[in-house]
Nucleic acid binder design. Structure first.
Lengths: 392, 392
DNA sequence: GACACTTCGTTGCGCAGGGCAAAAAAGTAG
DNA sequence: CTACTTTTTTGCCCTGCGCAACGAAGTGTC
């Protein structure tokens, strides 16, 4: 309802992207007047989101020195994240720059009992906060989950591998933590994390292509996450890019997910005798260790993934496509193959630098979940409400 | 630079979509206060874009009657459109509701000489205006062209079938007509026309899929046309949805355009002995006349087109997909096949009403071209400058 | 050391535009 | 004619930005 705060969002976003930075520079970056920057900085500092950065910038020899501002990290505020996966929840507490300050992995006791899973996650999150960062105030909680998420309602509509349906994640977690909760899909959360804190940070539009046990994409354009009418945008799982002989539960053949998902590809490698167990991690390890057959298989998979990336380039034409896939992240051969295949397949011939592997390490999941909430904070920073105590 | 006028745009957009309408209704539709609506209506009326509609609305028996406002058509203002096709330019003069008030088709004298083509079009447009609607003031000129258009620069970067490259369409036409000129691609212009004036008018996001001698798509989300980094978004021409044995100039096989373009499909029908000449119009006529073989061929084509539509549903997840393709528009069998195939192929299972055939008749091209300019007017109506005399 | 100079940041003022509330307008019902 | 309802307008205030003047914090020069 209230479209205010857009100038403040521009200021905070510029400060996030350009580190400690002088106010005049922010004015140039945002197109705002220096006066507006000063006022917005004061407002944001009042909320504890910005600080006068002590570390001085290189002095340019003449004129008044900068008194740079920076995103307030490590001071007062935190954001919590819960990532719901097949076998466990990943909890994380992040500072405003998306850096992990505390983490915890909580296996599901009973994966079928969603109330127990969520209640346990909430309780452990409260304890994590109390034990590690009691002096910091959490501003909100972001939740990322695979499957189909209705962001507006905060409901996990369908999670295939967990078998959950219509779980009111937001309300359940909000009641247990007392925090504002935002829920989004795994892929969109990852895309947001990449845009806010990752290598794609300076780009306006990006597409994130995730390949794991599921295959999903997310589209960000002009600063906004594109969810689509039914929160279903980015459905690339069933593109017919693979061998038509490979059957898919959806009833057709050659679907991307049925072909290149971690599970499917691990089984293929296992059947080919390349690895002893059907585990994609084993295949990646073997390839990293120099096994030629394993490497070839990983590159084969990347080539198929690349076709999906190329298709997204042609249809959406974003600045960059970020790919999260084991081989692309771990193996230089795969990263090279990805760029080469995209360049060869896409009609818009994106530059090599427009194809990026994911830039996060093992903490991806927690960062992505927290990014769901951080995104909202950066989109409308003046609406950050008085911090509520965690665990109420 | 000036982000004002957004409220005025909301008001004018609501009035456009909801016909003659009371100010209080507009307030409800836009979320603005009645006071703001009144003030914006006054401003828009001052510019000649709105009028107090004489035609009264059904009176509800109590209270002050509505004094409805409506988009000012047939009064003062016009918008011109020039559509540049392979063999001719289509000129049109539209009122603010996108209705064609005058039209003209101008064949190219020398298709290679882009200056001559554009100069001729501009001159004929000036004459068309002088002869038919001299009392009306043109607010601007919209240009639609196939191929790759850089909207920002107003340059036709590449038009394959005409062989033009880097033609500064905007500047050439602006110099000849004295009007503000906006240029966009054929597909995006059509999409805009559908959203502004067509059956998809009430939807926030839509995808337009065009199948003619070229195949192209355009994406509109949240009120904005999505152009992509290089103005290349919507490239579906080379999706591998057809028979891989069909070669494409791009070097690969089975590309959508190589398979289902008017030319390609007409040749297929011709080779199959269904029609005497390789003309898609003949095939359509035959099907409309009841020829079973022709109908089957048209439906076959629609099925392939439907796969592209389904793919766009899954990736972009718009409210509606509008399809402009001869069979879908002319033959009920094709329209049915389209809906059925999309429902069967898309993962989001869009409702039948989310798949629409194009809603314009033979004047599509002129309407689309004008819509490029009308879109800009509706996006920022207060920026409509003092009308310039056409032909200066 | 006083002063000029440069650049950064802040403050006062004006203005645009929206919301709220009161008032005016335009009809019906009795 | 009066009461009532609903639409539309008007007056007032508030937010938030830009502009321009001013204050601040350094260096360089004489």
């Amino acid at each position: 309802m209230n479209p205010r705060g857009t100038a403040a969002a521009a200021v905070l976003g510029a400060v996030l992207r350009h580190g400690p930075v002088a106010r005049t520079t922010v004015a140039r970056l945002t197109g705002l007047s220096p006066a507006a920057v000063t006022r917005n900085c004061a407002a944001l500092a009042g909320l504890g989101l910005l600080t006068e950065s002590a570390g001085s910038l290189p002095y340019r020899g003449v004129g008044r020195p900068h008194s740079p501002v920076d995103v307030a990290t490590g001071r007062r505020h935190l954001v919590a994240g819960i990532h719901i996966a097949h076998e466990h929840c990943t909890l994380a507490l992040l500072d405003l720059r998306g850096r992990v300050r505390a983490r915890l992995r909580v296996p599901h006791r009973d994966p079928d009992d969603h109330e127990d899973v969520l209640a346990t996650a909430a309780d452990r999150l409260v304890r994590l906060h109390a034990e590690h960062l009691p002096g910091h105030v959490p501003l909100g909680l972001g939740v990322a989950a695979g499957g189909w998420v209705d962001t507006e309602a905060g409901v996990l509509v369908e999670h295939a591998s967990l078998g959950w349906r219509d779980v009111p994640v937001r309300d359940l977690l909000a009641a247990r933590t007392g925090l504002p909760v935002l829920v989004d899909s795994h892929a969109r959360a990852l895309a947001r994390a990449e845009q806010l804190f990752g290598a794609a940070g300076h780009h306006q539009s990006l597409v994130h292509l995730f390949v794991g046990n599921v295959v999903d994409a997310a589209i960000i354009t002009g600063g906004g996450t594109h969810r689509g009418t039914r929160s279903a945008a980015g459905g690339v799982a069933h593109l017919a890019l693979g061998d038509p002989a490979i059957e898919c539960p959806c009833g057709r053949g050659g679907c991307l997910e049925a072909t290149v998902s971690d599970r499917a590809w691990a089984w293929r490698a296992h059947r080919a005798g390349v690895i002893a167990r059907p585990s994609i991690a084993d295949l990646g390890d073997a390839a990293a260790a120099g096994d030629a057959a394993a490497t070839a298989l990983m590159v084969d998979r990347t080539r198929i993934v690349a076709r999906a990336a190329a298709l997204l380039f042609d249809i959406v034409n974003p600045d960059v496509v970020v790919v999260t896939e084991l081989g692309v992240i771990r193996l230089p051969e795969c990263a090279d193959a990805l760029r080469a295949e995209v360049a060869a397949t896409s009609r818009v011939r994106p530059s090599p630098s427009a194809v990026l592997p994911s830039s996060f390490g093992p903490d991806v999941l927690g960062v992505a979940a927290g990014a769901v909430q951080l995104d909202a904070i950066y989109a409308d920073p003046l609406n950050v409400r008085n911090p509520i105590r965690l665990g109420v």
